[in-house]
Design a protein around this nucleic acid. Sequence first.
DNA 1: ATGGCCAGCATCGCTGGA
Length: 256
Amino acid sequence: MKLSSWNVNSLKVRLPQVIDWLRLNQPDVLCLQETKLQDEYFPADEIAEAGYHAIFSGQKTYNGVALLSKDNTCTDFCTVLPGLDDPQKRIIAATYNDIRVICVYVPNGERVDSDKYLYKMKWLKALTSFLQEERKHHSNIVLLGDFNIAPADSDVYDPPAWEEKVLCSMPEREAFQQLLATGLSDSFRLFTQPPGTYTWWDYRMMGFRRNHGLRIDHILISTAMVPACTGCWVDIAPRKLERPSDHAPITVELSF
DNA sequence: ATGGCCAGCATCGCTGGA
């Protein structure tokens, strides 16, 4: 089975690209971030025509997450991060065939000296606690989405320029390691990858053409799933389209 | 040169993203 994650930066704008991508790639689950849609406007019918069931948690203008799946029998649907009274729609989780799928849109943080950075760190701490709890109930966990963290300098096109900047700062990288310490592996790093593989490129300054990118979208799998993991890759094709999202989708493949 | 682009909302300029 295949699970994918894509920050679409407005599902309204990107819907045709998402539908095309689903038809072409046929993931079992596609997790979306930054849908930027209130639930009453979610394009469930168009997505159903492509053969996918959708659950979603959105709001006006900002944030918003969704899980699209071929399987329409998910259970334990959840859209809140316990311990955090957060009006921002940044998490959606559901269980598909004994696999716990947790889709997240981690706050950006803006700058390391901003209040949004403190909110980001608080959010990550609550997420780690949530994973510790989820681990007690599920052995097969996939935590995927836009983490807004480049875990290492090899995930950054220009490490000196980004040193201790938001997305690359040590506290953020430590928070990422704390997530892994709950019993998760970065599936991307289980395989040899082409150097300079990223998931986000700035719209400005011809960021994509110059491959000025960061790897900030991730698929983390519980250790029990590692032997079944057969691949993880980033598909940069959608980033080359007209009116692209600034993120590319990432996919993990599992032998069940 | 610390900007540049993009989406949304509400208009013709701002916020937020990363």
